[in-house]
Amino acid sequence: MSATKTFRVLPGFNLTLGYTLGYLSLIVLIPLAAVFLKTAELSLDEFWNVVTAPRVLASYKLSFGMSLLAAAINAVFGLMLAWALVRYSFPGKKLIDALVDLPFALPTAVAGISLTALYAKNGWFGQYLDPLGIQVAFKPLGVLVALVFIGLPFVVRTVQPILEDLDTELEEAATSLGARRWQAFRHVILPILFPALLTGFALAFARAVGEYGSVIFIAGNIPMVSEITPLMIITKLEQYDYAGATAIATVMLLLSFILLLIINGLQAWTAKRTGRDR
């Protein structure tokens, strides 16, 4: 600590920071540390065998592949939806704007059973898709549908405020310099939106990888085919294989930390690119 005590006008710094750190440690940090300590009980060989077992590898492939695909789909359609909400007037717009947050507010189990009802073989959509040879529920495609559902608001809500703040002068300048509408979008608007779009993509991906409730109902959970990684943790826990469950959790946690760092970097980039504070 420095020798000269800094003078602070406002009271409560030690109290509030102390409480924050204490509560954070108690609820989040110490329990999370348990994951790494428990994993450390395994030898490196044992750890490696658990996290690279064929069934677990298949679950990574499904979880990461479908999460990437869902985030990409959301980036495209989320951008369109954000664009429509900011730039066009149409009836029911306020209602739609409010409902975009539905996946944040709707409990995941509710979303899960509802999506299953829609996409099951005899369901609302399923009965028309099945004759076409497209099966969604209880297949990897079902996982994708659920992950698109929960990821959509992340893209819309990160892109929307940037679009709202966009100066019309930029586009006017581009047009007066002879740019076509598409060129103005491609070379003027998209570069400004890009960091926010990428942030939304990363947020949707991060959420999708860890998602459990909305996926397990529609996935069917067939080993090697439609088991997601969080489900592998549950399966190990149900067999009282705590070390195995924790080893897989360690892999997922490490990935989450890396994603968190990337997202923080992206948000700083967005702030710099657009002059907004996050």
């Binding site: 348990a34 998602e211 409730g213 969080p230 943790i233 826990l237 469950a245 924790t246 989450s256 930390f257």
Partner: peptide, 15 residues
């Protein structure tokens, strides 16, 4: 926010 809900449950089982 970035921890899977399943892991959120697991950590308390471990403790």
């Amino acid at each position: 926010f970035s921890v899977s809900p399943v892991i959120a449950g697991l950590i308390y089982v471990l403790v």
